[in-house]
Each structure stands twice: as structure tokens, then as C-alpha cells.
Design a protein around this nucleic acid. Sequence first.
DNA 1: GGCTACTCTGTGGTCTGACCACACTTCGAC
DNA 2: GTCGAAGTGTGGTCAGACCACAGAGTAGCC
Lengths: 247, 247
Amino acid sequence: MTDAAPQRAWRVVLEHIERDLLDGRLAPGDRLPSERDLSADLGVGRSSVREALRVLEVMGLIRTATGSGPQAGAIVIATPSGGLSALMRLQVAAQGFPLADVMRTRLVLEGAVVATLAAEDGRDTTDVHRMLAAMDVTDLTAEEFLALDAQLHLALAEASGNAVIAAMMAGLRTAVESYVLAGSREIADWPSMASRLRAEHHAIVDAIDDGDADAARQRVHDHITGYYTAAGLKPDTRSKSLGEESW
Amino acid sequence: MTDAAPQRAWRVVLEHIERDLLDGRLAPGDRLPSERDLSADLGVGRSSVREALRVLEVMGLIRTATGSGPQAGAIVIATPSGGLSALMRLQVAAQGFPLADVMRTRLVLEGAVVATLAAEDGRDTTDVHRMLAAMDVTDLTAEEFLALDAQLHLALAEASGNAVIAAMMAGLRTAVESYVLAGSREIADWPSMASRLRAEHHAIVDAIDDGDADAARQRVHDHITGYYTAAGLKPDTRSKSLGEESW
DNA sequence: GGCTACTCTGTGGTCTGACCACACTTCGAC
DNA sequence: GTCGAAGTGTGGTCAGACCACAGAGTAGCC
């Protein structure tokens, strides 16, 4: 029943922590025992403990900080977007995820998001409208505009109230970030593209506010495919730049 | 431009490997340099290299093996499902992902999958039909049945040809595996439930084969919500069992 | 008495060196 | 030529040693 775990000392640590989470001994905001204590308690080396904690950190489950006091040490945070983003970006880089599949998945998820928002009343869309207003500023560079665009789409996902979809959307977006940016440089007349995207955003949000789920879904679909087509993004597109940070 | 990365020696390793992947210096099937070589080349300790490799391993990007020869060492594999499963399961355990959101996401993705399959001809659904036949065996335990059920739904996702969605489906499924299993024990008349699920599966696949996307989407939606309702799965449901393996 | 500055303690972050088990490679004995 | 033993390089793990950091405690000064 204990499920033989002969090798992989770090897995012992990982499974121990997972069990603590499932049994409620650990919850968001709690501090994990110190690395040295875990090492002693589980009978493994401290380096093995660190390998497990590193995995949890990258996956967005814990945050580590040096020093002393209540904010130091490893603290459970359960912030999925960062880990999901890292995983997606790496899988795209390693060709485990074709770029085209990432885009298609984005279409599916985003369509569901706006349809949900349109169909259900009472969703808080203040962030969405705030981003929308921020993008109405005219003299934005492509980078600035796309950064706001990412925030807008993420705000939509978060407004839908589904943490899983919101995290996935963030991850998908991060995974293709460098490609989207590279694609923007292929667009000759950026100002007109920006104004077109602006208009489409407003149309999407209007459909949501009107409660027209089908229109919202259709418009977001056209919006995304339209940009990808204009940016010349093909599945085999490559880029050298990195998303950086976020890790 | 090099993006100051003063601290976090393991991030240096991670970013170095990501860059190698993006630039094509590393591709699936390739072997990474040995830990000792990486350590020396990047000027970090071997333990830091190991932390980075551990992350990549859990995320399904590399596979490590001891010994010598072409199969030993760290090899790029880019198998996303394992890492995504681990991440989802941990996030659910840490309450980063409400169970209800996982289920809703599954509805969205699976609906898109069957709709795609129905709309497009030429998809290879032999695996789907094989699983369907395997489940027609009558005297299956709930565990056996649900294991096949998971494979069937995964086969559907894979048949749709979208690696991202397939991996997400696998991850979502793994995340709620223990809860689904626990829910099955709440069902008094399992045999009748099994036969109902069987019939629904056949109906879904029939709709796909008939090219009726709307019917397929509706049926898969009812199928999933039906089971969840019958199993009494609520967002706050808790369980102590683990999915084990699969890491 | 109250405030400042110093020391102390515990934390994660990192590196080094040392083993072990393993799988292949090589080379010698037969 | 064949077979087996020693050699080599790999990941897996542990132990110990520092460092930087942040807070707690304490001594000293005003």
C-alpha cells in the first residue's frame, strides 16, 4: 500500500508533501519545514529535498525566501499560472507542442471564455474594461500594445471565473509570446493593424455585454485567427528570443 | 540584453537549456551534456545543474538513466502529458485549482474534441473503437472500467490530433482521478451505471462517425455531467488517496 | 525609560568532494 | 574466436562546509 518507492529520494519528498497537501496538513499560506528538518525527518539528503522543492517552486506551488522570520522559508502559494507557463513554453521549445496546436487550443478556450461571460450575468468585467481603455491610447509600440492585449485576454479568462482555464490561457500565451512578437514585426502597417485589433476588442466586449454568446465566440475566433494570419505565424515558425522572467 | 540573472544558479542552467532547445542545438532524442560537463561549462555547482534537470524531468522534457552508452544520461523526450498531469494534480491538491473548475474545463475541451472529430473526416479512430470494444466486457470492476474510460477519453483527444488538448485532458483526468474513483464507491448500483456509461460512449462515437458535431458535443457534455452528478462530486470533495506513479 | 545599534540565530543558496550502482566498453585469458 | 573480468563514465545520493540574508534578541547610549 505504501507503494514501493525504492529509488528517487526526491520523489519521496515530493510525495510526502503532496500527501500533506491532500490531507490538509499543508494549505496555502503555510510554511514548509526547513530543508534541514525535512532532510532529517524523511531520511534523505538535503540536496534531494532541494530538488523536490525546486520542482514545486517552478510549478508555482511554493515560494522560497532567504532570511528569517515568518516570510522566510518555503511557503505554499499555489499560483498555477507561472508553472503552467513555464511548462508550455518549454514544451513548445522542445517541439512537444506544435505551435499550431497551441493556437487551436487557444481558440477553443477563449471561445468558451467569452461565451460563458456573455451567457452569465453578474461577472465582474471591470478589469476587462480597464484594459480596453488602456489600449485606446494611440501611440503605443507593438510591444506595448501586445502586452496590454495579453492582459486583456487574460482578464477575460479570469472574469469567467475558471482558474484552470485562466491559468491555461496564461500558459498558452506565454508559450507563443516570442512568436507573436516576432510576427508583429512582419506587419508592415502596424498602426492600422492596431486600430483593427482595437475595434475587434470592443466588438467582442460589446457582444459579451449584450449577452450574445454566439457572436462573442465568433468574433473572438475571427479576432485571433485574423491576427495570426496577418502576422504570418505558421506552425514551424522559429525564433531565438525568450520570454525571460516569469520563471 | 543578457537579462541579468545574478542569483539562482539553477535558472542559469534552465535558461541555457531552453535556449539550446529554441536554437535547435537540442532536439528530441538528443543527449544533454553530462551533469559534470554542464556544471563546468556554466560555472555552477553540480547540485544546481541537478535541480534544473530535475525540473525538466518532472515536466516531461527529459528522461534520465544511469549507466553508460547511448541510452544513458539525460535525453530530450518532450512528453508533455506526464508533467502536465503532475502539475494539475499538485495544484488541485494545493487548492490552486478548484475541482469544479477542472470539471468545467474538461467539458470545454472534450466538447471541442468530439466536435472536431465529427466535423473532420479522415481521423484515425481505431484506438477509440478498440477501447470501446474493451469496455463492452461485462464483468469489469469499477476501477477497471474507469481506467478504460480514461483511456477512451484520452484516445478521443489524441484522435483529434491536438497534442496540447490531449495533454491537458490527460492532466485534468489525472488531477481528479482519485476523486472520480472515490465517487464511484458512492454509486449503489454500479452495473447499471456501467451499462449506462457504455451506452453513452457508443452514442458519442456514433455521432462522431455520423459527422454530427452538435450531437457529439451535447452527448459528451451530458455524459460527463451525468457521471459527476451521480458520483456526488462536489467542488469541495476531498480524498486522501493518491494517483501515484505517472510522475 | 526609550531608542538605536550590534550580535545571534536560523533560513535558503551554493559549492565541493566523496561514494554507490549501473551499463556499456575494452581488453586480456583461454 | 569466445568469454569473462577489469575499466570507464554516467546519474543518484549524501555529508559537510560556506555565504547572504532577515529577523529576534540584547546591550548600550541618550
